[in-house]
Each structure stands twice: as C-alpha cells, then as structure tokens.
Design a protein around this nucleic acid. Structure first.
Lengths: 144, 144
DNA sequence: TATTGTTATACTCTATAACTATA
DNA sequence: TATAGTTATAGAGTATAACAATA
C-alpha cells in the first residue's frame, strides 16, 4: 500500500512530536537521576502493579530487559518485587513511597515544561491535541 | 510552578502518543535491520547533510555517540563522511543511494502503519492532529 | 586559544538462548 | 508440558574525560 500525501504529512508530524517529547522527557528523567527507560517504567506503576511480562509488553521490549531495569530501580529504592500469591511464578513490580514521590515529581516537571513551551499555541488547539492525541495513541496501540 | 489539570492531561497524552510512535517506528526500523536510533539519524539526512555536532543537537545526544552511530551506518553502506571544504574540522554525514532508498522505504512503511491503524479516527481530526502536532513539536523544540 | 570530531572507559539498554521454579 | 522470571552473553546506545587536527 502506497501512503497518500496526507498520510506522509501526519507520519512526519508524529515522528517530530515523538522526538521532541522524548527529548523533554529525557531531560526531566536525567534531572531525577534516571534514564528515559527507567522513567517510563516508573510511570507504568502509578495505577497498577504489573507483572514482568505485562511490563515488557507495555514498554515494547523483551522480558529479560525488564529484569535489569527493575534491578536498577530496586537498587535505588524506587520499586520492589512482590510475588503474586495467586500464581507464585509471577512477580509484580510495586512503587515504594520514594518511587511514587519521584514519579509524581517527574510527571509534574514534564507537564510544566510542556505547558510553558506550548504557551504560544492557542488553548483550544491544545485541548484538541489532547483529545485527538489520546484517540490516536489508542488506535496505534491496538494489537499487532 | 504547579501544573493545572489540563496541563497534566496534555502531558499524559503526549507521553502515551510518544510511546506508541516509538513502538511503531521501532518495529519499522527493526524490519529494515536498524535500531530506532539509527533510523532516526537516517531520517535527519533526507533534506540536508548535517555535521556531527548538528546531529548531536538534533538527536538530543552527545557528539561522541554520533561517532558510533555513523560508524555502524557507514559500515552498512547507508551513509558516508564528507569533510567540509570550508572548515576542514567539520565532517558532514551524507546519505548513499542505498541509504536514501532504505530511508524512504521506512518512511513509507511508517506512514502506512499509522494510516492503517488510525483509520478509525475521523479524517478531519487527523488533519487537525497534523496541524496542531506540528505547532506543538516546534514549540517544544525551541531553545533551552 | 577555541572548536570539531575521535578514542578510551564505564555503564545502561537490548535481544537470544539456556536455565530454574512453579503450574 | 507450558509459562514466568532469571542468567549468561554479545552487541548497541549513552555520557565523561582526554586527545588530535584545524581554525
């Protein structure tokens, strides 16, 4: 299938936006002494306690990779492993109090950085971006 | 500065969108036998021949890193180094014919993947996303 | 003297294959 | 036997400090 001119334009835009977000998010993470990958893992723990396999799927990497990421976050006291009582093969990754604090600080810092820089973009456009961006992220995340 | 509820919402959305784009883009890159970082460097060469320092700034990484990335892309025949005649300290990175071909194939494949998956999102919304997303990327990319 | 790219080093990220423990 | 997580290994990405060539 050949992409249309509109397809190409949207793809280029999403790619540029992704790069800028990664840059800003990486800056915030580094200020907290974390890598971008560690910060993204930490953010997946705010509302649930996923297993290693679930984390691998959420982050789009191999499960062997998650072992190392969690090792390093655990060594810094930001997360801990908990064995699932229902199935003793699975380990769940849980935020410590310190980990929750660091995660919230990073989220706030990133939100502020975005808001400051996007102050030149009309408010109604930002609201649209939030709405449509969420729909697009959902669509892109659908299986396979 | 404390972020508003709208700030947080926008930041969460941009973060989710970034993650999905990175996942899809990474898949396309891997199919071409490249890492996500190599693919992103390659895409910076379509319209210009940046120096190592410029590439470092564009990619948000250290210049020492660019040396390694270019080494690996050069080893695979996708780019080559050219000394700038005006200032013999600077090297410019140039696409080979093969590199341009691979870059274009990846761009097309990514545009198609996005278009297919976003088929459920109304066309007018996608046009808005492209317009506002570009403005936001510009705003986020502004200095400092 | 300042700048550009490179090298050396150390650590992190990443996937594949082989392994252990549990189901 | 199948699945969840780990370990060993190897290669790639990353930054810091020291360096060579050029300006």
């Amino acid at each position: 299938m050949e992409p249309t001119s509109e397809d190409r334009h949207l793809a280029r835009t999403l790619s540029a936006l992704h790069r800028q977000v990664a840059l800003r998010y990486g800056t915030v993470a580094r200020r907290a002494g974390l890598t971008l990958q560690q910060a993204e893992l930490l953010c997946q723990l705010e509302r649930s306690a996923p297993s290693f396999g679930q984390l691998a799927r959420l982050l789009g990497c191999d499960k062997t990779n998650v072992t190392g990421l969690v090792d390093r976050l655990e060594r810094r006291g930001l997360v801990r492993r908990e064995t699932d009582p229902a199935d003793r093969r699975v380990s769940r990754v849980v935020l410590t109090d310190e980990g929750r604090k660091v995660g919230e600080e990073m989220s706030d810092a990133f939100a502020c950085a975005v808001a400051e820089r996007c102050a030149t973009v009309p408010r109604t456009d930002l609201a649209r971006l939030a709405r449509i961006g969420a729909a697009a992220a959902d669509a892109l995340g659908d299986a396979s």
